[in-house]
Design a protein around this nucleic acid. Structure first.
Length: 361
DNA sequence: TACACGTGGCT
DNA sequence: TAGCCAAGTGT
């Protein structure tokens, strides 16, 4: 194995120039965001934490309405801790990665009950909390408390990879990136929160994955990737395995009163804890998929409705079926329950189920 | 280390 | 249209 290439050292004046150029740019072009403190204002740790959880693998535009809804419903961490888990899951429906919502609620309870409502300020303490890892612990330390921390997200990966022209593919280049990012931010008391946010704003608005706007970039004059013309191709990434497609059936099951059968999904795993509609198992071989409910009395009737949905690691294709329950004697497990047709459009559920509900209503 | 885990916007 | 990608974490 090749020895890891050591990060080239920057001189102290080069580091200071980088930080000054970036922070000057940030002072002129910082984005106004609902959770972000204004210049010279103090951030609310609850808002910073909540926004950072929502922003994990999620774009700012998608987060804003959810953030506003959450702080409106639960203005403090105590309010969130006291909320019903189901209300939190429902409020999160549509934002994705639902384990974040479960961990958010758990974390609020730990903060409220074991930390007296006060967030810890250092990464090592923050990382003990559910849903908070390397990135989020550093981000809260820097942004909420303006303490030095090395904040590395996908934006920082890209900015650093390009600025230092790192050609080793991610994630193998992570140690190098961490070394460079640390060199620029570790133990530097001058505006740690603004520096972290400036790096991410730069990555989100200037040093974008496609068509970076180098002409507007405060760092282009010293960017090694720009100098050698390879910036657009960076960061290199290891090839991802191909996504399989899974198939299955989804059901619109109605009773004599026109009610529709819904399903509370098990707490862990895909879409865990969320409300959905009944489906069969999902598999790559449709021939081997059995219907969820099948009897002579209640035979599934195929519809034209189909649901296609893309998950992170597989594509899904569901064929819609109608089942009309003629006898009220049919018993379902406890996690299935009836909802009036009128209320179906108000039930909060993940997008894959919303798609089917829209087709059927 | 590698994989599970959502969604919507952009190209 | 299909693939890429986004302020990652947990196991």
């Amino acid at each position: 194995m090749q020895p890891k290439q050591a990060a080239d050292k920057m001189t102290e004046s080069e580091i200071e120039a980088f930080r000054r150029d970036l922070l000057d740019w940030y002072d002129r072009h910082r984005r106004t965001l609902p959770w972000r403190a204004g210049p010279a204002q103090t951030a609310d740790p609850y808002h910073v934490w909540l926004s950072e959880i929502m922003l994990q693998q999620t774009v700012v535009a998608a987060v804003i309405p959810f953030f506003l809804k959450f702080v409106d419903k639960w203005p403090t961490v105590h309010d969130l801790a006291a909320a019903d888990q189901q209300d939190v899951m429902d409020a999160w429906a549509g934002l994705g990665y639902y384990s974040r919502a479960r961990n958010l609620h758990k974390c609020a309870q730990v903060i409220a009950h074991e930390y007296n409502g006060v967030f810890p300020q250092v990464p090592a303490e923050l990382k003990k909390l559910p849903g908070i890892g390397d990135y989020t612990s550093a981000a809260i330390t820097a942004i909420a408390f303006d303490r030095p921390a090395t904040v590395i997200d996908g934006n920082v990966d890209r900015v650093i990879s390009r600025y230092f022209a790192i050609t080793e593919p991610l994630p193998d280049s992570k140690p190098q990136i961490r070394q460079y990012a640390g060199m620029l931010s570790e133990a530097r008391a001058d505006r740690p929160g603004d520096f972290a946010q400036a790096m991410m704003d730069l990555g989100a608005t200037i040093c974008t994955p496609k068509s970076p706007k180098c002409i507007l970039c405060p760092l282009s004059g010293s960017c090694k990737g720009h100098e050698s013309g390879i910036h657009q191709t960076l960061p290199h990434k290891k090839a991802k395995p191909q996504k399989p497609t899974r198939y299955g059936y989804i059901y619109w099951i109605t009773d004599r009163n026109g009610r529709v059968l819904c399903h509370r999904r098990p707490p862990e795993g895909l879409l865990g804890g969320m409300t959905g509609l009944p489906t069969s198992e999902w598999g790559e071989d449709i021939e081997n998929i059995k219907h969820f409910l099948h009897s002579d009395q209640n035979a599934p009737v195929k519809t034209k409705a189909q649901v296609r949905h893309v998950f992170t690691h597989f594509n899904l294709m569901l064929d819609g079926y109608l089942i009309d329950i003629k006898e009220n004697r049919v018993e379902f497990p406890e996690d299935y329950y009836w909802v009036s047709r009128k209320n179906m459009q108000n039930i909060e559920m993940p997008t894959v189920f919303k798609k089917f509900v829209r087709l059927m209503l």
